[in-house]
Design a protein around this nucleic acid. Sequence first.
RNA 1: GCCGGGGUGGCUCAGCCCGGUAGAGCGGGAGGCUGUUAACCUCUAGGUCGAGUGUUCGAAUCGCUCCCCCGGCGCCA
Length: 437
Amino acid sequence: MTSKELKTYGKSDYVSELDSSSAGKIVTLTGFVHRKREHGGVIFIIFRDPTGIVQVAGHRKHASQAAFEAMQQVTLESAIRLIGKVQVDKRAPTGIEIHVTSFEIVSLAGSEWPLEKDAGDAFLYDKRHLYLRSPSQTAIMQIKAEISRAAHEHLDGEGFTEIFPPILVSASVEGGATLFPLEYFGSTAYLSQSAQLYEEAAICGLEKVYLIAPSFRAEKHRTRRHLTEFWHLEAELTFATHDDIMGVEERLVHAICKHIKSKCKRQLTLLGAKIKVPSLPFKRITYDEAIEIAAQQGFKASWGEDFGREIERAISQQFKEPFFIKGYPTSARSFYHLPDPDRPEVTLSSDLIAPGGFGELTSGGQRIHDLDQLMERIHEQSLDPSSYSWYLELREFGLPPHAGFGMGLERCLVWLLGLKHIREACLFPRTPSRIRP
RNA sequence: GCCGGGGUGGCUCAGCCCGGUAGAGCGGGAGGCUGUUAACCUCUAGGUCGAGUGUUCGAAUCGCUCCCCCGGCGCCA
């Protein structure tokens, strides 16, 4: 039978559903040739679908001639459909084996599948469109989807409303240097680097909002933590303080960890990742205390500046669970952060730091809701008020105290799974040196 | 932008210091094999050594210029 004759693929089974209790069952599988080992009279094919791999055995004397010949002919990564009987066999890699009765090549792959065992990272990402098929990359994408699902379920449960912000914007959140410009009917528009300003507009109607949307940063970073395009989980709520938003953040991170740990066991095992669900509430230390911790590790941080990477890592290494550093100096934060009324040189803001040297996971805080105070900060930072006209107008019409945060979805994945590089967390990563495939 | 590492068959690399005209493993092709575990055995094809330029009888190898890639930092999620 060829695929042209098929009325339906009649798919009924997935690899992950097969175990020793399936012995004797006739299954129909669709997927790909992951490995092939040919021995003359017997051929082993490692079959792969989205849920795992299983060995398929074809014997010249037992399988039909058509099935055996198709197995001889098939190449690595060809798409196949097969019917066979499940058998328990200790010699098979997963302890289970399918003895073929029907083997159909749905789409024959060329003989030179380029991804070999010793392929380097650069090559794998040049071939990302093919590399994505591999079990590890499939598992990462499945977990990424579950992080999104966990976030939706958790935030919906806390009464947040999902919003869908613009990606094409006219001004930046904090400056201009890190925006990607584009031609927009004779004027210049930019790709959004954060939806925060739009969230602040949305909360007066919706009270609690969140989004998962792409953000763009035109910064030539050469590190394993940076992308030029990433998926940004941002939330904002009104009638709320800095303490309220830290509560939202820690409950969310806790919920994500719990969800992934229970829903993604197979993927975590495959990736060799273990998730420790952190206990609530997370520790909160002040910026000043963080400086002291750095000093104990032999690092001198000068007050008023954000921590450098080395110092942040040293501080993070002193913790076993995520923790907040709060009270960052006003001089080190963006113009919209609310200065502490009792101590204006620091802001009511915080970063959530992942432990063990990982570093920043989220950044958030309470925003300035008073117009005069915001204008003052805009002038202090030499920004142009006309760029923020609608954002300022929000403050003229009853904007309550409010707070929010942002988290990079890919960074969350890197932390949870212990990935070596943030590009592993992306379907098609975008970095300064990579825009294709 | 700054600091460091690197560009040699399809892939991963050796050769470069001490110049003599390119090699391995994997992958590909052909053949063999009834229990493999990214199988094994035999045969085989495949490279203007990142680009330009200089020195030299001779450059993958030495000098200069440039390009690209990788890691780190500044900054950030």
